[in-house]
Computed example of a mutant assay.
Amino acid sequence: MPAGVTVHHPGIRRIFTHGAGELSLFVQRLEVFGAMPPTSPGAPDIAVREEPGAFRYDMAGTPLPDQLPACARAFGTRRLLHGSGVCWTPCAAVLAQVASIDEAP
């Protein structure tokens, strides 16, 4: 996602699925490259962790043991949403996912 997208389109709410996927793992690398001078004049100076921090992240699929901790380390836990990934997920599966989150350290 290009830097500054939240500045240019502040009214759009964005939700990254599956704990932001690879973004959670690449945020440190993006910070290194983000510290370099902007390549285009007038490019906003936005910290990599701050911009994705304005988004929301769902915990669809199997958030534990890897997805949820990576997302929490990268972006915090204030904007996490429950997501099952599909609208026809059986109630028992949703309850099992919530229980696994509740029981996590």
Rank of each mutant, 00 (worst) to 15 (best):
I12C: 15
I12R: 15
R13E: 15
T17S: 12
T17D: 04
T17A: 14
H18E: 09
H18C: 02
G19C: 15
G19S: 13
G21H: 05
G21T: 02
L23T: 05
L23M: 15
S24R: 02
S24E: 03
L25K: 00
L25R: 00
L25Q: 01
V27N: 03
L30Q: 12
E31C: 07
E31S: 05
V32H: 07
V32N: 02
V32E: 06
V32Q: 07
F33V: 05
A35W: 06
A35C: 06
M36H: 07
M36G: 04
P38S: 03
P38C: 02
P38K: 04
P38R: 02
G42T: 05
A43Q: 14
A43H: 12
P44A: 02
P44T: 02
D45S: 04
D45V: 03
A47M: 05
V48P: 02
E50H: 12
E50L: 09
E51Y: 01
P52W: 00
P52A: 01
P52L: 01
F55V: 00
R56V: 00
R56W: 13
Y57K: 01
D58A: 01
A60G: 13
G61E: 06
G61M: 04
P63Q: 11
P63G: 13
P63D: 13
P65H: 10
P65Y: 09
P65R: 04
Q67G: 06
L68E: 07
A70S: 11
A70H: 15
A70W: 07
C71E: 01
A72T: 12
A72C: 14
A72F: 08
A72L: 11
R73L: 12
R73G: 09
F75L: 04
G76A: 06
G76K: 05
G76T: 03
R78S: 13
L80M: 15
L80D: 10
H82D: 02
H82G: 03
H82E: 00
G85D: 14
G85P: 10
V86K: 10
C87F: 10
P90L: 07
C91Y: 12
A92F: 11
A92V: 13
A92Y: 06
A92K: 08
A93H: 07
A93N: 05
A96R: 10
Q97K: 11
Q97D: 03
V98R: 08
V98S: 05
V98K: 08
A99W: 00
